[in-house]
Structures are given as structure tokens and as C-alpha cells.
Design a protein around this nucleic acid. Structure first.
Length: 478
RNA sequence: GCCCCCAUCGUCUAGAGGCCCAGGACACAUCCCUUUCACGGAUGCGACAGGGGUUCGAAUCCCCUUGGGGGUACCA
């Protein structure tokens, strides 16, 4: 039997990080078993489903590189199929029309709550007579379709992650609605019909679906099919252990992209939440993880989202990139920062810049501030930089540096060729090298900290910006 | 309220009765490297929620308590 799994996001919002993790598990499982990964868009909620959310979900999965083999299949295009199944259940006497209004339902729940009981539908319309039914119809009431749930009855399944889970049908809230008054199918019905039609063998989803599982198993039985295997993964919680929400910094994959995370780092991190490879390695590609993945090694407890760890992982991936790849990844962020990349000396220069700053950043967005003095002219000076430049003897040293640089006959511009010039100035000015270096940094970059100074000096010189900066300092200090 | 699930350092986790006075990673602290900030290297800090069992022996098995999470829709 070949493995067929699916990701079934609902386009009522953007691609959520939790959905992305479910996608990762599905992808890993499918690839591990050489199976098929199907994407299905669950857009049966006409009021809340939006095309732009669907686009966001598709784009997010593509960005992450979680490629699917079939789909996307849209449930909204299969409404007739679900309606046919509803008719079938009605004909078989397994479902019935319920005319109870929302107000009556609400009233019932309030009474139940007041009595200290669990809110549930009391199946009051399960045995309506033909006359009663006609009376409601005459009132103009539009019925919902409810699927009969026999009580009491134990439903249990062996969850691939959690082991056996047992549910009593008494705790399911009464006969469940499978189609709304407007004839549209509801989630539980549509899921089961689709999973049957699509030949899904393993349903891998979040823990929040555990309570839906017994209802779905009942539906499988009613339709004459064996339920698939279920694997309910733990949820991802925010750092406080609560449900992830917008105020936790980011919940949608697109936001992580904008924040400068690499898709491979994010995937890696998501795979590492509640799963770990047997070898204990923490940095791995999903392709590698796929060869190792199984549910045995998935934890049962929810994991908190840790920004520090994600940042660290991302920094590790950034360091691994080749200069050319770095430039490619960094370019959108440089452009977003407003830098004009068309005027840089050449491609090699840009690669050298990328390499220079790569060690100092966790996220791609940080590159703009680190490389600003190399991509934008003129520069502004921070307060500490100005203080540094106003130290006694610094103005003269900078002037000497400018003169020395202007007169130097450099065979090539490199750390090797520039270093002697700095040493020469330090000696001539009788200035400590540390002081000179700090001052030089302030003059060239406008700040007292930043990437390696000599490398920065080289890049500036190659752009022809070093001398003008030293001269600008003269005017500044005059 | 009721039902279900879960419980090892601050966080992510390893651990499936003796290999564990519990290992790794992130974070944090100190030191080294360094013109700076980082990177890198070294060291340190730091946990089996509590209580009962079972057993020669429990982080590992069972029960209870506590805590956390999920569900309880004509949402998915």
C-alpha cells in the first residue's frame, strides 16, 4: 500500500506557522515512504474563505519548498459530491433533517449550562413525524442535516503518535450537523468524503483535531469505509505556553520570510519541534530528515516557540551559504532598505560585502544596517563616532591617513596592501594602533562598531569612497 | 462545567527498569581570540511537578493530586 497523505488548510487566514509544521510532518512522512503528498484547500466556509488567503498559503508552501504531488484540490468545487453523500445518508436513515433554530439551540445550551451539564444537542428532531416536519416547513424553517450518533458507544483508535485514544459517543455533543441550512456541507463531512475519495491512508494533523476524530470514524463506518491511520501531532505554543496569536511577533509564514528567515532554517526548526533525529543532530535538511522520520520519535507534548533558537539556526544557515547565494538572498532586503545596487563596482565586490557581514547576522534583515556605510553615501555619524573623532590627535591622524592613502602606489587593494599604510600612519603620528583603528572606523563608517575594519576599508577603497570619507572628516572637524 | 491529551534544565529535547547523583542544543555567565560588535573556542549555571504504589532496582510501569494544553459551532 502506498502512503497517501494530505495537507488540508482552510483559507480563512494566511499560512499559519502551525499549519506549516503540519505540512512539514506530512511532507516528511510522504517522502520517507515514497508516498504521495496532496494539497487540499478546505474552503467550504463561504463567508470566511478568501482567495488572497489561498494565494498566501500556496506561496508560503512554495517558499518553504514543501512541494506537493497532487492538487490543490478545492472543496468548493466538490459541493455536489458532498450533497450526494448527504442524500445517501438521508436515504439510509442515518441522517435526518433538523429544524431547530439557532435561538432554540442557544436557549437549550444556556439551560444545560445552568444545570451544570455539558452543552449538547438533545436530538429532539431525530424522530419527527411527517406532520411535524411539514409544519416546520410551512413555517419557512430551513433544516440542517444531522448525522445520527448512537449513544453510548466507545470509539477508539490507535493514534500513531499517542497510542490508543478512546472516546464515548455521549461526549460528542449529540447528533452532529453535516450540512447547513443553505445546503453547504460542514467540515467533518467534507473531510471524510474527500479522504475517502482521495484514498488517504494517513491523516497527519494537529492535536486540535483529536475531538473530531471519533465523529469522522463514525462517518467512515456509515459510508462503509475503513478509517485511515491517524497521527495527531502536538501543537506549537507561544513562549508563554499559550496559543500562538498575532501578538507573538509572527504567526504567518510570510511574516517569517519578511523578517529575514531562510526557508531551510524555518523548516529545520519546525521539524525540530516535537521531533528529533536519532543521531541527535540539530542542523539538517528536510531531505535528510525524510530518510529518518517516523512517528516513534515525535513527542506527545506541546512545544513552545523559541525565537532565540530559530535565530541561531538561521544564523547557521546564513554562514553556510556561498557568497553568490548570499548576494541572491540579501538583494531583496538591500533593495527594500533603499540601496542602489546598480552602482557597485562589480559582482565580486558585492559578494565580498556579503561574505563580510554574513558572520555577524542572525537574519537577513540585519544586513541593511551592517552594510549601509558600504552601500550608501554620504554617511551620517553616530554620537560615539563623533566623540571618537574629536579625541586629541585624531584629526591629524585622519589627515595623515588621507595623505598616505592618496600617495600610496597600491599594486592591488587588499588587506595586505592597506595594513602597512595604517601601521605607517600609527608610527608617524606616535599613535597607539587601537586608537587609530577606532578612529579610522569612525571616519570610514560613521560608527564605532561594525564588521571587520580592514575588510571594510578594502571594500570602500575599491569603491573609491575611502579617501572622500577621510576628507569629509576633515571638514567635519574643522 | 464536561470530555480528551500532555508533564525531564528558563526553552527545545535525549532517555523506552539498572549504561543517568540524567546527555545535547539554544539562552545566560565567565575566560580566551579580537581595534569594536559579532563569529569561533573553553568552562560554568541549570531539570526528572508532588504524593503513593510495583520492583532487588524507576526519569522510565500503575494510581491519585496538581499544573498546562485542546475540544465542547449551521468554523476549520
Amino acid at each position: 500500500m502506498t502512503v497517501r497523505v494530505r495537507l488540508a488548510p482552510s483559507p480563512t487566514g494566511n499560512l499559519h506557522i502551525g499549519t506549516a509544521r503540519t505540512a512539514v510532518f506530512n511532507w516528511l512522512y510522504a517522502r520517507h515512504h515514497n508516498g504521495t503528498f496532496i494539497l487540499r484547500i478546505e474552503d467550504t466556509d463561504r463567508d470566511r474563505s478568501l482567495p488572497r488567503h489561498t494565494r498566501n498559503i500556496l506561496a508560503g508552501l512554495a517558499w518553504l519548498g514543501l512541494d506537493w504531488d497532487e492538487g490543490p484540490i478545492y472543496q468548493s468545487r466538490r459541493i455536489e459530491r458532498y450533497q450526494a453523500v448527504v442524500e445517501q445518508l438521508l436515504d439510509q436513515g442515518l441522517a435526518y433533517r433538523c429544524y431547530v433554530s439557532e435561538a432554540e439551540l442557544e436557549e437549550m445550551r444556556i439551560a444545560q449550562k445552568a444545570a451544570g451539564k455539558a452543552p449538547r444537542y438533545d436530538n429532539r428532531h431525530r424522530f419527527l413525524t411527517e406532520a411535524q416536519r411539514q409544519a416546520y416547513e410551512a413555517e419557512g424553517r430551513q433544516p440542517v442535516i444531522r448525522f445520527k450518533i448512537e449513544e453510548p458507544q466507545e470509539i477508539s483508535w490507535v493514534d500513531l503518535i499517542r497510542g490508543q485514544i478512546t472516546w464515548n459517543t455521549q461526549d460528542l455533543g449529540g447528533d452532529m450537523v453535516i450540512a447547513r441550512a443553505d445546503g453547504y456541507p460542514l467540515y467533518n463531512l467534507a473531510v471524510v468524503v474527500d479522504d475517502i475519495d482521495m484514498g488517504i491512508t494517513h491523516v497527519i494533523r494537529g492535536e486540535d483535531h483529536i475531538a473530531n476524530t471519533p465523529k469522522q470514524i463514525l462517518l467512515y463506518r456509515a459510508l462503509g469505509y475503513e478509517p485511515p491511520q491517524f497521527a495527531h501531532s502536538p501543537l506549537i505554543l507561544n513562549p508563554e505556553g499559550k496559543k500562538l496569536s498575532k501578538r507573538d511577533g509572527a504567526t504567518s509564514v510570510a511574516e517569517f520570510q519578511q523578517m529575514g528567515f531562510l526557508p531551510e532554517a524555518l523548516k529545520n526548526y519546525l521539524a525540530l519541534l516535537s521531533w528529533s533525529p536519532p543521531d541527535g543532530e540539530e542542523i539538517f535538511s528536510l531531505e535528510k530528515a525524510a530518510t529518518l522520520f517516523d512517528f516513534e520519535r515525535v513527542t506527545r507534548s506541546a512545544a513552545r516557540f523559541d525565537w532565540d533558537k530559530l535565530n541561531w539556526l538561521n544564523s547557521q544557515y546564513i554562514k553556510q551559504l556561498s557568497p553568490a547565494e548570499l548576494v541572491e538572498r540579501l538583494t531583496p532586503f538591500w533593495q527594500a532598505a533603499g540601496f542602489d545596487l546598480t552602482t557597485v563596482p562589480d559582482a565580486a565586490w558585492l559578494e565580498d560585502l556579503a561574505r563580510l557581514i554574513a558572520d555577524g547576522i542572525d537574519r537577513l534583515t540585519e544586513a541593511s544596517s551592517l552594510s549601509r556605510f558600504l552601500l550608501q553615501d554620504p554617511i551620517s555619524y553616530t554620537l560615539p563616532a563623533l566623540e571618537q573623532l574629536r579625541l586629541p590627535g585624531v584629526a591629524e591622524a585622519m589627515r595623515a591617513m588621507a595623505t598616505t592613502l592618496a600617495q600610496a602606489d597600491l599594486p592591488e587593494i587588499s588587506v595586505q596592501s592597506l595594513k602597512p599604510l595604517v601601521d605607517q600612519v600609527a608610527k608617524a603620528q606616535g599613535m597607539k594602533k587601537g586608537l587609530l583603528m577606532k578612529s579610522l572606523r569612525a571616519a570610514l563608517t560613521g560608527d564605532v562598531q561594525g564588521p571587520d575594519l580592514m575588510e571594510s576599508f578594502v571594500l570602500l577603497q575599491r569603491r573609491g569612497w575611502a579617501l572622500p570619507r577621510l576628507e569629509a572628516v576633515q571638514r567635519l572637524l574643522a
